[in-house]
Design a protein around this nucleic acid. Structure first.
Lengths: 332, 332
DNA sequence: CTGAAAGCGCTTACAG
DNA sequence: CTGAAAGCGCTTACAG
């Protein structure tokens, strides 16, 4: 592999001048031309590791996602890689199941990434606190933890849940059920809290027997909905705290020949692409996931440049998208 | 950030001894203990960039995927990151749309990854040939290019297509249609060729009017199937060259109230998770994508260790999984 | 504008 | 078993 020294020899200049010609350095036009010619002749590309050692920046960002089988995460990941590519950053990917979380934190420490974006923080882990104490650049997207001293990007999950409560009650529903994700996820907690509190305010409190909490998965949505639909007084309206659960619930209804939306309204959360497919046609709370990803990537890059600037918290607005899984009533 | 020098000072040894203690070096038990203690006291972690500069290995692998909106790729990606995590490798991710392909190749050259796995080669690009000429470690998974001098992992797409032809004809179908992905993809070409050739052998040649070629997407499957179903003599059996297209076709049938499988059989390819959901219940050709990913990751690691060992080509077997989108007849 | 030199933080022969 | 030294391939003051 050619080095800057090889190029220098061929161009008849010092190695330092080669380096200058290829960075922002001040070099005469003639010399630069000779160097570029020589560089392309030997197929020279600067070694990024060596450069990183001097500059202290590797131009690489870590991303931690959970569960790529939930299409929400590939959508986030795609937006993230797109934004970071444009910013000239490489992306190192970890899965949060397994040792991913701590591996990502360790990678900052070891200098193989400049910072990390977490999309799925669950609890406030000790390693994360330690990393933040030494000012490791970390940004949380999607799931957040208020007590953590880092930039955080989320959407108004609580308001979204409340909006669904309004929507159900305004349309005359009182037999209402809820299927939610794991309570370690802030998104699951907030959506449920917003939904439940608003229902209580509207004098339609949620029956504890009609609350299911489990995984953000199709499987869980399917089994929980199956159980709900088999009960003596099945619900007429069901809120699922993400789309994947809702798709499972729709499949449960389909399997039991329960008519949606005639006998059951179903609402999800996220607005992943397939929720709009005819097979599901799911009413759901739309999160601006692309914008959230872009903002998160931007926040991390700024944080890397300036580790001690004030912490930033961004909360995006969400809104209900009405489709065929609920009667097309205006959401007033 | 603490360096090995800091640890050396604290432990009262030379910097070289710290390095030995933390790698495979030969150090007395007492010294090592003192060093480890000192290291943890100052929070020392070896700088991976500096280490890479000496060892010539960054322990990072590049992965190029296309189109994370096709669930097939997240499934591959998940298997890949899982295998590579276990092998102690970091994963740098690129999207093949945009400059991803060449960026990944450049990253090998620049020393920021040790090798690259492509899941979506389309044509034999010049940069790729150049990279192979200088023995850059590259492995192709899923889509392949025979003429390329690198390790390749695929499944028997042609046989899979032929099996679907057998299945249709054995069950009495003669009005048969095909909706396929872009012909730049070897998978799309091979599945179609296997299907078409076998149909010809069975004296049921595919009518050119019943062949649609476009994108590996739900949208394309939906629109192509809509057109097919609106034709004067709609097909009774439809083969789609991936599941995403097939799901679009099923949605088209659903929208037009065409009964599946009574009036239309639909078969896909890949066996992504959601094809098994009640909403689709799609008969499809199962590819062992997890095994393919693991084999590809393994092949790349071996290639990195030994750039000049003989080239390897792996072709996995696939098989039809019969579900509700075709009548449950034995596949003979 | 250009060169000589130092140094980023490691690993690894080479001595002892 | 341990230390002193060289060197991986760059960038960046410092001189001139």
């Amino acid at each position: 592999m050619a080095t800057s020294r090889d190029v220098a020899k061929l161009a008849g200049v010092s190695q330092a001048t080669v380096s200058r010609a290829l960075t922002n350095g001040t070099v005469s036009a003639a010399t630069r031309a000779r160097i570029l010619e020589a560089a392309s002749q030997v197929g020279y590309v600067p070694n990024l590791g060596a450069r990183a050692m001097k500059t202290g920046r590797v131009n690489t960002v870590g991303v931690v996602v959970a569960d790529l089988s939930n299409p929400f995460y590939p959508e986030i990941l795609e937006a993230l890689t797109h934004t970071l590519d444009l910013a000239g950053q490489k992306v190192t990917l970890w899965n949060s199941d397994g040792p991913g979380n701590n591996a990502a934190l360790g990678a900052i420490h070891a200098g193989s990434v400049d910072g990390v974006i977490f999309t799925t923080v669950t609890e406030s882990s000790e390693p994360l606190r330690a990393a933040l104490n030494r000012h490791s650049p970390v940004v949380l997207i999607n799931r957040i933890v208020d007590s953590l001293a880092c930039d955080q990007v989320s959407s108004d999950n609580s308001d979204g849940g409340a909006a669904v409560a309004d929507y159900f009650v305004n349309n005359g529903h009182s037999r209402i059920a809820f299927i939610g994700g794991p309570s370690v996820a802030s998104t699951a907690r907030d959506r449920r809290a917003g939904f439940e509190h608003r229902l209580a305010e509207l004098d339609t409190p949620l029956d504890p027997d009609k609350i299911f909490t489990g995984a953000f998965s199709h499987d869980f949505g399917f089994s929980a909905a199956t159980e709900l639909l088999a009960s003596a007084e099945p619900p007429t309206a069901l809120f699922c705290s993400n789309d994947l659960i809702a798709l499972g619930a729709l499949d449960a209804a389909r399997t039991r020949a329960v008519l949606v939306p005639k006998d059951l309204w179903v609402v999800g959360y996220d607005d992943i692409t397939m929720s709009g497919w005819p097979a599901f046609d799911l009413t759901t709370v739309h999160q601006p996931s692309r914008e959230m990803a872009e903002a998160g990537a931007q926040a991390l890059l700024e944080r890397i440049d300036n580790p001690t600037s004030p912490l930033k918290t961004l909360r995006f607005r969400s809104h209900i998208v009405v489709r065929g899984s609920t009667a097309h009533a205006p959401t007033g």
